[in-house]
Design a protein around this nucleic acid. Structure first.
Lengths: 220, 220
DNA sequence: GATCGGCTCCCCCGTGCGGGGGAGGCCCGT
DNA sequence: ACGGGCCTCCCCCGCACGGGGGAGCCGATC
């Protein structure tokens, strides 16, 4: 059965764009739209979507409050994917603290948007810490590390994965990590892949960046 | 003509080991040995080696003082490669501040030792920041970041290389960096290789680690 | 007993990465 | 006028990396 998505954004253009991108996927179905946060709760109750793609800046009730409201009042709440143009990092951070499962940039490529929806639908946390920082820089926004911390707080790495990430952050290769942990390199690759997925990192470098940005490893 | 090396270490065993490793290379020649720092200056004057492999902990005159003395009193001084078992990070840091061109762990593999000698002989700075951290951790030594800072201070990156490193530290791939700087990917690869060589990093992840450890990029 | 998450290991596969060279153009200092 | 540093781009090449599957084992949980 397909992943059902509710779109919440005050701009019709954005909703149309998201709908076009998501409906192009056979396994994703957009089941409804809302133009402001206040309309979200009844729609969630009615449609019971798997994922809510939620804008942060909206009239009446913003994405953060709407996220809190949904999580507080709905049984088996949907996954919340915060959508942002990212003029304001603060909002994203707050939304994550409010319980959102991931965030997504409007500027992201279609494939990334689709990927993000699938990921949160599967119960994985969050996306794009390093690339958020990168895009934030383009906008002159200095943000990132607080979001990165939120990412890691919510990433729910297993003990082994955390251990692997720590070694990655010391510059060790997969083979070296394998030797250190006395396991096979294939095992390490599995853990590394899990870490990359959970952190939304494209490669080990981005994962290590997130580790530093979040304070997961101490710079000093 | 071969690279000439003067070995300075109070332990004959270490000298013998270094000699064996280095003389196995056709392009490297060990031209002399000294057992303490005090003997270094006259030997340098007499032998005019390209590189001095200098232990830090020695009787009479330690490696730091010996390094200062050589650089202060000899015209066209040799490159100084500080050799350490690294129980003490402080010494290495001081030696680098004193003007040493690189540091090297006794536990390093022969190939790394040879590589280090060749590098400093060619005028490149320094080696193994990330792996130093790694080995330091094995010894329960928490050191690393001060040495990393010294590495970067002395790495003398060109403007372009520094720019590339900053982008690497934001998680960008070579292709993305190329797009950002409006140059070819081959150009970026050249810069990245130069950065890796100067920082003594094996891969971009280690380079980014060094960037964070040294404060070259701000964690926050 | 069955189910689930975590850890382990395996396959195939594409490609980005990094090493090793070289080369031309540019500016700058001698 | 020449060399040297820097930036630019090119070649070949091997390999580690990362994606996408699958599978067995164990302990906890239901």
């Amino acid at each position: 059965m397909p992943v059902t998505v509710l779109l919440v954004d005050d701009e019709p253009l954005v909703r149309a764009g998201l709908r076009a991108v998501l409906e192009a996927q056979p396994d994703i179905e957009v089941v409804g739209e809302a133009a402001d946060g206040a309309a979200v709760i009844p729609l969630v109750r009615q449609l019971r979507p798997d994922v809510v793609a939620m804008d942060v800046r909206m009239p009446l009730l913003d994405g953060i409050e709407a996220t809190r409201a949904v999580l507080r009042t709905v049984d088996e709440p949907p996954k919340i994917l915060v959508v942002t143009t990212f003029e304001n990092d603060e909002y994203v951070y707050e939304a994550l603290r409010a319980g959102a499962d991931g965030f997504l940039l409007k500027r992201a490529r279609p494939a990334e948007i689709v990927h993000a929806v699938r990921l949160v639908a599967e119960g994985e946390s969050l996306l794009f810490p390093a690339s958020v920082r990168q895009l934030a820089a383009e906008y002159g926004d200095d943000g990132g590390n607080r979001a990165a911390r939120a990412v890691l707080d919510r990433a729910r790495l297993t003990e082994r994965e955390a251990e692997v990430l720590r070694l990655m952050a010391r510059g060790l290769s997969n083979a070296e990590i394998a030797a250190r942990l006395v396991v096979g390199t294939e095992t390490v690759k599995s853990h590394v892949s899990a870490v990359l997925a959970k952190l939304g990192a494209r490669d080990r470098t981005q994962a290590v960046i997130t580790a530093y940005e979040s304070g997961f490893v101490a710079p000093g």
